[in-house]
């Protein structure tokens, strides 16, 4: 059982991790992330790289949708912008990958802010629909601006080069994507220790009151769009490098729904939720694939069922969590933690 955690200064009490136990767990997490590649195989490394990309994008979406309350169905399309930026630079400018990724973040930020302009005029469901429109328009651009995007054929991207090595496979790519993910998640968490994060939440909870209390809605809504898009852009850039090829169909509306599902399942408005949601939503299809493999000898054409079952399970997860566990996996996690904090006393 844990009782209280006295502090000497306000600064200490404002910390991201407030108890020694929390610091210890964070250390253990970092250590296991460092050790993971040495103890694991390529298949798991591949999955973890994919999860990392999803975590970045889901964290961005959670800032926008979970914290600021602006529902967006454009996250995948924004990732597309980042991916195409990286692809174009890779094919035309031969700039180093760090620069390409930053450019992907930058370009997507600008595009995301433009796509967020309707949020100044409409909100709630109307805004969600406007983001659907934005993603259709972006898809149109990917498909038809052939001189830049390669049209329906898409583009190929060479693996990133670092210190004379090609980061072509998951075992090397991991060392690029994982540190960036950790940093970006921490940056997002910091945001909500400050006035900017409070302004976001205030807009979500009561936008008009927030405005009367001194929060400029246009500024902070666009800022939220900008940050979410920056995350999407970086995630999209990694996506392009990771898969080595992109085309307009790489970023369908369904993928935006996937991210929305991830933040709902994980927990809207919690950083931990973005991580848990991305992990859960990436591993679920793998689990389904495993199930299909098991069923293969008994059911005709079991592998053909994989894709529809996956679609259905995504839907069921969204519906189920919203109905029965609207605060997501993060809330379940909190309950578990509380149980152990209070143990052996019952709450």
């Amino acid at each position: 059982m844990r009782i209280g955690s006295p502090k000497e200064t306000y600064a200490a009490d404002e910390g991201l991790f407030r108890t020694r136990t929390q610091w210890a767990w964070f250390g253990i997490l970092l250590l296991s992330l460092v050790l993971f590649p040495f103890l694991s195989n390529l298949y798991w490394l591949y999955l973890v790289c994919l999860i990392s990309i999803h975590v970045i994008s889901a964290t961005g979406l959670n800032i926008l949708t979970g914290y600021t309350g602006q529902v967006s169905l454009g996250q995948a399309a924004f990732m597309g912008v980042g991916a195409y930026t990286v692809a174009w630079l890779d094919n035309h400018a031969a700039t180093p990958f760090v620069l390409n990724l930053l450019a992907a973040g930058g370009v997507t930020t600008v595009v995301g802010m433009v796509a967020g302009l309707p949020s100044l005029r409409v909100k709630g469901l109307y805004l969600a629909i406007a983001t659907i429109a934005a993603s259709f328009i972006l898809h149109f651009v990917f498909l038809n601006w052939e001189s830049v995007t390669g049209g329906a054929r898409g583009m190929n991207i060479a693996p990133p080069q670092a210190f004379g090595h090609e980061l072509a496979n998951a075992d090397t790519f991991y060392w690029l994507v994982m540190p960036v993910t950790v940093v970006m998640v921490l940056l997002a968490a910091n945001l909500f220790r400050t006035r900017v994060g409070r302004a976001f939440i205030a807009i979500r909870d009561r936008d008009i009151s927030a405005s009367v209390l001194g929060i400029s809605l246009p500024v902070y809504k666009l800022m939220s769009f900008a940050i979410a898009s920056f995350y999407a852009g970086i995630a999209g850039g990694f996506y392009a490098y990771f898969f080595g090829a992109i085309n307009p169909e790489s970023f369908p509306l369904l993928m935006s729904i996937f991210y929305l599902a991830a933040v709902i399942v994980g927990g809207l408005g919690t950083i931990l939720g973005s991580i848990l949601g991305a992990v859960f939503m990436t591993l679920t299809p793998e689990l389904l694939r495993y199930g299909v493999d098991v069923m293969e000898p008994f059911v005709d054409d079991a592998s053909a069922l994989l894709s529809p079952v996956r679609t259905m399970v995504f839907g069921l997860l969204i519906v189920g969590f919203l109905l029965f566990e609207p605060h997501g996996l993060a809330e379940i996690w909190r309950r578990v933690r509380r149980f152990f904090h209070l143990w052996p006393f019952r709450n």
């Binding site: 309350g69 929305l260 679609t311 995504f314 839907g315 969204i318 519906v319 109905l323």
Partner: peptide, 16 residues
């Protein structure tokens, strides 16, 4: 917004 997102989930279920 929750209800709206539930209908998004339902659409996935029906497609599947």
């Amino acid at each position: 917004i929750s209800v709206f997102m539930v209908t998004i989930g339902l659409s996935s279920v029906l497609v599947g």
